[in-house]
Structures are given as C-alpha cells and as structure tokens.
C-alpha cells in the first residue's frame, strides 16, 4: 500500500515532465524540417517535410496529438535513425543498463573496501592512496580515460578486444530475453557469446568505474568516519564486542545509508549521461542516442528519452527508499 501511494505521488511529476519536455524541445533553436530536408532543398521541399512531420500546426494541436499517441504507448519516430522511439529505447536501455551495472559492481567492489579501510586508518598510506585515486578518477574526463584504456589495452598490448560496441563483428547477439547479453547468453548456454560480450564490456565498464569510484569511495569514507566516531560504536567497543563485528555490522550498516543514496544518484547519472564513453566504445546506449537527437533537433527521441529517464528516476528513488527500510527500521515509506 505505501508503495502504491508513493507511485501515485510521482504521477504529477511525470505529467509535469511530459509538458515541460514538450515545450522545451519546441523551444530549441533550429528547425528540424530544414535540417532533414538536406543542404540543397528548396523552400517548397522544406515546407513539405514540415507538413509531413506535423510541425506546421499550432503548439496546442501538436501537444494534444503527442499526448494521444503517448497514451497508446507511441513515442513517435526518430528522424535521425528512422526508427520508432519506443523500440529504440527498449533496445538501448538494456545496453546502457548492462554497462552501467557492470561498472557499478566493479566500482562498488573497489570503492567500499577502500573507503572503509581509509576510514579505519585515517592519515595512513591507504587513506592517501584512496584520496589520490578518487581525485584522479574525478578529474580525468571519461573520454580521456576511455581512449587511454583503448590505447593501452587494445592498441599497444592487444589484450582487449576491438572497441566495436557490444559484440565483435563476427558474433551474433544472443536470443532476446532480458536484453542483457551476459544474461541472455547464459540462458541460451552460449558461452562463446558470453565471453565475447564480457570482453567487450571490460574496457568501457572499467572507464566508467574509474569515474564513479570517487564519489562512492569518498562518501563511504566520510560516513564510516562519522559512524565510527559515534557513541554507539564507543559503547559497542566498551562492551567488548569483536572488532570485526563492530566495524562490519554496527558501523558499516549505519554508514551505508548515504552510500546507497549516492549509488542511486551515480547509477541514474551514468545510465543517461555517459555519452562520451558510449561514443569512444561505439556502445549503442541511451546517452548518445539522446544527444544525437538533440543536436539534430529531433523532437520525438528527446521527449521519449527524458520521459523514460523520469520514469526511471521515480522507480529508482522508490527502490532506494525500500532499501532504506531494510537497512534502517526507523525509516518508513509513509513518513
């Protein structure tokens, strides 16, 4: 029940997003009809294209049309790729999600232990290493890290596969169940494709992990420090509880709340905003799709993308709240 109520609360914001994205895309400079008519088009050709796209009608009429299509689940057709926006988002979301999740697993696997150890021994060499890694991770732009990794591991060492997207040229995608190639190839029992997909994932996810490591490690360190300095830890220690139990159960569990929040933020950010990593590795993800559409003033994909991201944020926030409840019984959804 509280979950349902939370979803209902999100409805107005989703409707707001629909109106705002519609208006914002219309307010973009540039004229899609002129763009798609090509360089040598005449005025009449441009007018015909504008009419075909329905952009010669009034804004309210266009909006009513947009909402009517939306209610049927029709997000329109992209002019840049010529495909229905819905099917493109459906094809690209798993690609982005698979990459982002792999990157997050990598970065959580490094950031959590690093942050914890750094917090346990503030000022120690480990703490300094943590500081250096996080500073470097944040300050290196992802396209640079990406190209550097390609240069080192693909071009020079030749150990990484060619950065050709989700699969190399001679592999066939696994049958579609979840859209995650790793999962789908396992379901199909096709280990060759699994290895191929994993190989393609390594460099881009490492690039993203290096970038997302920093906020996670820092927040872990900071909240661990705060937790370790608090009174209940002092009590626990005074009561003679083992060090492992004090750190892993009492301190860590309490320190995890801000980490989960940051994780959610980092996840949603990386899902849609990793244009540069996607470009470098030719990854067919959401971010580059949206940016390409934006550059071309291609309204339908931009609207579809923003809407999809808004829905995703709503769901993600809900999930984070649910995880909160699990971690901390004091948190309630209806509060």
């Amino acid at each position: 029940m509280p979950v349902l109520r939370r979803l209902l609360i999100a409805l107005p914001s989703v409707m707001g997003v629909i109106v705002v994205t519609f208006l914002l895309t219309r307010a973009l400079p540039g004229d899609p009809a002129i763009y798609f008519a090509g360089p040598a088009a005449t005025q009449q050709a441009i007018a015909e294209i504008r009419h075909a796209m329905g952009f010669d009608r009034s804004l309210p009429a266009q909006f009513v049309d947009y909402v009517r299509h939306l209610s049927r689940g029709d997000l329109g057709t992209s002019l840049t790729t010529g495909q229905p926006v819905l099917s493109e988002l459906a094809a690209r979301l798993p690609a982005s999600a698979e990459l982002t999740l792999t990157a997050l697993v990598l970065s959580v696997g490094i950031a959590l232990p690093l942050g914890i150890v750094a917090a346990l021994r503030p000022g120690s060499p480990v703490d300094h290493v943590c500081r250096i890694i996080t500073t470097a991770g944040v300050s290196l732009p992802t396209f640079f890290t990406g190209l550097l990794l390609v240069y080192l591991f693909y071009y020079l060492a030749g150990v990484a596969p060619a950065p050709l997207g989700r699969l190399d040229t001679f592999s066939t995608p696994p049958p579609h169940y979840s859209g995650f190639y790793l999962v789908d190839s396992l379901i199909a029992g096709d280990f060759v494709t699994f290895r191929a997909a994993l190989g393609q994932l390594l460099l881009p996810s490492a690039t993203m992990a290096i970038f997302s490591l920093a906020p996670l490690a820092r927040i872990t360190r900071a909240s661990m420090l705060a937790a370790l300095g608090s009174e209940f830890i002092r009590t626990a220690r005074a009561s003679g509880l083992g060090r492992r139990r004090v750190v892993c159960v009492y301190a860590l569990r309490n320190a995890l709340l801000p980490v989960i929040t940051t994780l959610g933020m980092v996840f949603s950010f990386m899902l849609g905003a990793n244009v540069l990593v996607e470009k470098v590795f030719a990854w067919p993800g959401l971010g580059s799709y949206a940016v390409d559409a934006l550059i071309a003033s291609d309204y339908a994909p931009v609207q579809g993308f923003v809407l999809a991201m808004a829905l995703l944020y709503v769901m993600l926030n809900l999930m984070i709240d649910l995880i909160y409840c699990l971690l901390d019984p004091r948190v309630r959804l209806d509060a």
Binding site: L86, S87, A90, A308, L316
Partner: peptide, 13 residues
C-alpha cells in the same frame, strides 16, 4: 528494475 522495462515492450522488438 532495469531488465523489467524492456520486457514490457519486448514484443515490439
């Protein structure tokens, strides 16, 4: 969350 979204529209794919 992420995998369940494409499933709903998998038919279109």
């Amino acid at each position: 969350l992420a995998p369940c979204v494409p499933n709903q529209i998998g038919g279109d794919m």
